[in-house]
Design a protein around this nucleic acid. Structure first.
Lengths: 343, 343
DNA sequence: CTATATCATGCAAACGTTTGCAGACAAGAA
DNA sequence: TTCTTGTCTGCAAACGTTTGCATGATATAG
């Protein structure tokens, strides 16, 4: 229970009998070569034995680098993000970086103050999972001229570094799957059009729909205001109220699909017997719900990991590929089935 | 795209025409009273207008406080933790603290290096959600003499500050519920006995079982090695293999219950017709699985929030209550039903 | 009117690093 | 020998704050 004193460079310098600058150099991998190797040896041993740890604040003050990056997500409570965050952390930690993550809850004001806090702390880089297509917070961050990479989403702007998925391929696969089961009248619950994923998946839907020669009735798509369950429910109500018949719903997101499922069963429509449903993201637990959801799997962890390494390159002054797009995968479970004859 | 220069105290001092120390004092809420109030006014206006932000590293170097706390969880990917983390962040942010969260994955080595990183960064306090009953990492952290509060779990040690739930009340309610449905032979899947929750829920089970006059056949309990789905599956296999009959399983955790459900259905046992199952925690989505799980609801967000405020008191040198125990709630869904006659 | 208390501000040191510069010393070349 | 070159190490400044102490001015008391 004795209060441990913090060891400083000065103290290990005294212990070894050299100057503090020598110790500093001996400890830095990049400056080590300037110092005689047995001195290096001694210094390292002493510092280990005395349990020396560099004072992070002092280091930052001097070098203006914090070895810290900010990560802004909409809501860590959303099961998509934790794996992504793990990916970011794992890739960052290899180079001694630490991630500070904050939530915006979709609130622009909150996002702005969060950003303020982070740059106030002097982060070396920023990873945004929260970015909208036109996003003044992004612009603000960019004007601070710190390296940024967006993940999962992109702003409508050129020259932004980002990791995304192949959205059009994803919806193409889902739609093709549905068609292969005999569905012709397929509705969509589209995501918020202010988000790149929402817009791209919707665009891909109309594109694939026409290339598959499906009915292209615009009233077969409902636009969700947010990616959550209640928006999903609301959208199927809307779809049903519009009076059009459909045998399948392609949802822009798993949470929308979960809501859709709930709304359908409240209407006594059975999935997949009466209507098939597909999701998007393959978030955790979606294989255990009733019925297990057919969905598009994205690579959450990998997306984060790639974002981390891209950001590191940026912070090192290198020029990584501007955008990397990851492949997706269709995973078929029980929420989709062959369409019944009569319909 | 112009690189913004960082404003320092010196620059705002020059702008106002006073000394930097005056500016420093004028900006600090605790030192403000030393300065003439119109000077304070001017300083504040100037600093606002110039967009001054205190250099966090310099502040830390001087004061030895980072306004940062470390949060260590087993795995942020586990749906229990994100709400808790939100609670921590929200309570901390009111006082300008920031949380850095790290994962241990149950790996003691990893936890140690994580702790090292965190104290290296000079965190002002620590919140542990990962602690085991005997935990040398906890001891290590305690020896650094930084304030600690553990959340959800406690080590087997006196004088540790923590936020927990009323475990025995929780299992008592679950068990009573099962009994009220006519169950008499009730199995338990207990959690890891190295964790306080595991041990306490198990102890509460044997206690409640005897006070409810149930068969107390020790072979009716299986011990899981970890709180996850596959451990749950494995445990019901074990239970079945032991050859004893039971009409209900009380699980120490939702994830164990989810695994149990999977194993049962693989054995063609239908829940709740053939066997009822209860979980613990009421984690997200558990109301959407098949069948919706009867479980004990704990207050994840609140737990985090309380932990945050307790830690703040500790960091301010106050002496908060040593342990606060939060009430739980039984939520009845469809995984429990009246026992069938013949059995 | 002088002495003293009070208030507001400035001065300068310190926190623990990193790093440009210069000096010491040894070894090799002329 | 002397000059050059190279290798290793020390010196000291600087990063942006906070804070104990000293100082000047102003108000109050005697």
């Amino acid at each position: 229970m004795t209060t441990k004193k913090r060891i400083t460079l000065r103290e290990v310098a005294e212990a070894v009998g050299v100057h503090v600058s020598t110790v500093s150099r001996a400890l830095g991998p990049n400056t080590r070569h300037l110092i005689n190797s047995d001195v290096v040896e001694q210094v390292i041993r002493a510092s280990r034995q005395m349990d020396y740890r560099r004072h992070a604040a002092a280091y930052s003050l001097k070098t203006n680098r914090t070895k810290t990056v900010g990560v802004i997500v909409p809501d860590i409570t959303n099961a998509i993000f934790p794996p992504m965050i793990r990916g970011i952390e794992d890739s960052l930690s290899t180079a001694g970086y630490l991630a500070i993550v904050g939530n915006t809850d979709g609130d622009n004001e909150r996002e702005r103050t969060l950003l303020d806090t982070l740059v106030g702390r002097g982060i070396d880089g920023l990873i945004l999972a929260s970015v909208e297509r036109k996003d003044d917070v992004f612009d603000l961050a960019a004007s601070e001229s710190i390296p940024i990479v967006t993940v999962n989403r992109r702003p409508d702007r050129d020259s932004v570094h980002s990791i995304v998925h192949d959205e059009s391929e994803g919806v193409r696969r889902a739609l093709t799957h549905l068609v292969s089961l005999g569905h012709r009248r397929i509705a969509m619950i589209a995501g918020p059009q202010t988000l790149s994923t929402g817009a791209e998946r919707y665009a891909a839907f109309v594109q694939s729909r026409s290339s598959l020669n499906l009915d292209s009735d615009e009233s077969l798509v409902a636009f969700a205001q947010a990616y959550n369950e209640s928006a999903g429910e609301h959208c199927v109500e809307e779809l049903i109220a519009a009076g059009h018949t459909f045998t399948a719903i392609l949802c822009a997101n798993d949470r929308l699909a979960v809501g859709a499922l709930a709304a359908l069963s409240r209407r006594n429509l059975i999935c997949p017997k009466d209507v098939s449903v597909t999701g998007y993201n393959d978030m955790p637990m979606v294989d255990r719900i009733d019925p297990p959801l057919t969905t598009i799997r994205i690579q959450q962890y990998r997306m984060g990991f790639e974002a981390g390494s891209m950001l590191q390159k940026l912070m090192n002054g290198e020029s990584p590929a501007q955008v990397v797009v990851l492949p997706v995968e269709l995973v078929i479970r029980s929420s989709t089935a062959r369409v019944l004859d009569g319909r």
